[in-house]
Design a protein around this nucleic acid. Sequence first.
DNA 1: ACCCAGGCCTGGA
DNA 2: TCCAGGCATGGG
Length: 274
Amino acid sequence: MLIRSKNFNIAQIANSGQCFRMNEISENKFSMIAYGTYIELEQLDEETVNISCSEEDFHERWVEYFDFKYDYDRIVKELIQGKDQFLKAAAEYGKGIRILKQEPFEMLISYIISQNKNIPSIKNCIERICERYGEKRRSDQGEGVTYYTFPSPDRLAKASAKDLRELKLGYRDEYIINAAQAVVQGELPLEKLMGCSFEEAAAVLKKIRGIGNKVANCILLYGLHHIEAFPVDVWIAKVLKEIYDNRFDVKIYDGYAGIVQQYMFYYMRNLKGV
DNA sequence: ACCCAGGCCTGGA
DNA sequence: TCCAGGCATGGG
C-alpha cells in the first residue's frame, strides 16, 4: 500500500522518541509492532512510504494510527512562516513527524518505564516485557518474522514483583503492576479518558503512583491523543531554558502544543548530536 | 570511571 | 510552593 504525503517520514517518526517499537531493519525500511500486528514501512522517497498492509487494513486501522486526518502541513507552514526562528528551523527539520495514536495501555506502561532512562534503554525494557508477558506471534512478512505483542492489562496485573524485577526495570516494577491493576479494576479507565477534558484526564492519571506531570502528559499526548499536552522532559527543559530563557508561552500554540513540542524535542536532540 | 537518561516520591524548608 | 536527595539500571 503506497502512501503519498508531504508530512510522513518514517525515520523521523521512529527517532522522535514517541514510539519505542519502531526499528530500522534495513536502509530506509522500518518494522513496527502495534495493535498486535507487525508491519513494515519503507520510505521510497521524501513523500512516499510503502506500508506492508492491504488497502482495507490501512483504512480500518492505520489511517487513524498515523493521524492522517489531521493537517500537519498547516502546522508546519504556520511555524515556518512564523516569527519564532527556533520553531521555524525545528518545523522545517522535522516536518515528516506525526503524532501517532498509540495504544493507551502500552503508552501508560511505556512512559512509566521511561522515567530517568534514555531511549535505547526504554526500548530494551519494553521488549523484555513483551517477550515475557506478550503473545508470541508469527508474521508472514518477508521470510517470516517472530514477534511479541505488548501484554494486556490483565497479564501485567497478575505479574509478580519478583518476576518483573528480573526484567531490570529497577524501582519501576511496582509502579507497573499497580498501574495495570488500576486499569483492570476500572480505577483508571483509559478509553474513557480520551473523551474527558485534558485537565480531568491528567488529574486521574496523576493519582497513579509513578505518574507525575511529565509522564501524564506523554500518556495524554501519545496514548489518549490530547494533542494540547506539552510534556517537559530534560530535552524540552533545555529548549525552554537555552532558547527561550524560560519565557516560552505555550498558550500561543493552544490546542496543538504537543505537536510543537515534538518538533522541539526532535530538533534539539539533533542540535546536541544525539 | 563517570555522568546522565522523555522523572517521581518523600521529607523538609 | 519549591528544593535535595534517593532511587535501580543501562547507555554513551
